[in-house]
Write a protein that binds this DNA or RNA. Sequence first.
DNA 1: ATGAGCATGTAACTGGTTACATGATTTA
DNA 2: TAAATCATGTAACCAGTTACATGCTCAT
Lengths: 196, 196
Amino acid sequence: MRSQNAPSLLGLLSLKPMSGYDMKKFVEESIGYFWNESYGQIYPMLKRLSRQGLVVCRVERGKGKPDRRVFSLAPRGRKQLQNWLAAPPRYAPPRNELLLKLFFGRLAGRAEMIRHVREFRQHHAQMLIQYSHVDKWIWKTHRKHPDRPYWQMTLKYGLENSKGMVKWSDQILKSLARLPNRGKRTGAKRRKGGVR
Amino acid sequence: MRSQNAPSLLGLLSLKPMSGYDMKKFVEESIGYFWNESYGQIYPMLKRLSRQGLVVCRVERGKGKPDRRVFSLAPRGRKQLQNWLAAPPRYAPPRNELLLKLFFGRLAGRAEMIRHVREFRQHHAQMLIQYSHVDKWIWKTHRKHPDRPYWQMTLKYGLENSKGMVKWSDQILKSLARLPNRGKRTGAKRRKGGVR
DNA sequence: ATGAGCATGTAACTGGTTACATGATTTA
DNA sequence: TAAATCATGTAACCAGTTACATGCTCAT
C-alpha cells in the first residue's frame, strides 16, 4: 500500500461512514495528539480509494448546505486495513527542534533555553489535564464500546509521555539554574560598557 | 531563515569545522536519537550557506583519498545561529504509526497489537541502556567541556522518554492480556468449522 | 454586514528521502 | 575478490502543507 495516509482514512471509515470533511474534524478532535491530516491529502486519496474499490461513496444532497460525499469501508478496504494493522509500524525519523536548540544551547545563553523549556513544560502540563478530561469523557460516553480499551491505550500513551516530559522539564530547569549564563566564553570578545 | 535544515548545519559547525560527510556521521552517532540529515540536503545547503557567507570552505587535498571540503562557521553564520536558537522551537506535527494501529487495534486482533507493543518496549529498553552508556562516555571524555551540560540535557530527554515508554508498554501489555481476542465481533460472520 | 461553519476541491510549493554515479583504499 | 570506508554530489521522486476558490446558511 503506497501513499502513506491511505490506512488512516480506511481506519476512520472502519469506525463509521464519513465525508472528507468529517475525517479532518474527527482527526483533529480525537487523535490530533498523535496524528493529523490535511484536505490536500484527504480528498485526492478518497478519490483514489474509490477507484480501487476500497471504499464506496454515496452522495447526500444537502438542503441549503453543500452536498456531502459520504464514504464507507468496502470489504476489500477492510481487509487491506487489517493487513496494514498487522504489519510492524515504522518509526518516523525523529526531528526534535527543542532538543536541537538545547544541544547547541550554550551559544544562545541559558536564559533562552530556560524560556524554551518552560514553554515546553507548560504545554505538557496542559496536555496532562486535557488527557484526563478526555479519559473521563470516554468512560462516560463509550463505556461499552468494544474499541474503548484501545482508545484509552493511546490516551495513556499521551499521558505517560507528557508526565515524563514534565518531569524532565523540571530536572532541566534545575540544571539550567545552576549553570553560568554562557559557560566560558568561546572566542566571543567581551564588549566594553554595553549591556547589549 | 528558510530551508529548515540550515540551522542544524550551522550548529554542527559551531562545535568544530566539518565536511558534509563528517556532519552526516556526527549526526548519526551523537544526536541521531532526535535528529537526522541526509546527503541530499547537506551538500546543496552547504553550497548555499557558502554563497551567503555564513560558512567558509577550505579544501583539503586528500592523498589517495578524495578531497575534503571542510567548512567552518563564519561570524555571520554564528550570529544567524544564535538568532535561531533564541527563537521558539516549532512543534513537528505528530505522526505516530504505532498509536494509529493501536487505535484501530481491535480490527486486527489483540495478538498483533501485543506484538507491536512488545517490539516497541524492546526498542526503548535497548535505548535506555544505550543512553546510560553514552552518558558515562560523555562524563569520561568531556568532563570539562562547556557544552557538556547541554548535551546531557538532551540525553536525559531520551532517557526520561524511553523510561516512560517502557512503563507504558508494561501497562498496555497487561491491559491487552485482559482483553478478549477481538472484542465482540462486528459484522464479521462466524464461519462454520475453520480456525482461520 | 461580518464572520464562522459547512463542504469540496486543487495548484503550487516545500522539505526531505532514495538511489545512483564516481573512484581510490583499506579490510576481511 | 568482495565488501566496506572515504567523499562528493545530483536527479527523481514522494509526502505533506498552504493557500486559495466556490458558495450557501446561521448566529452575532
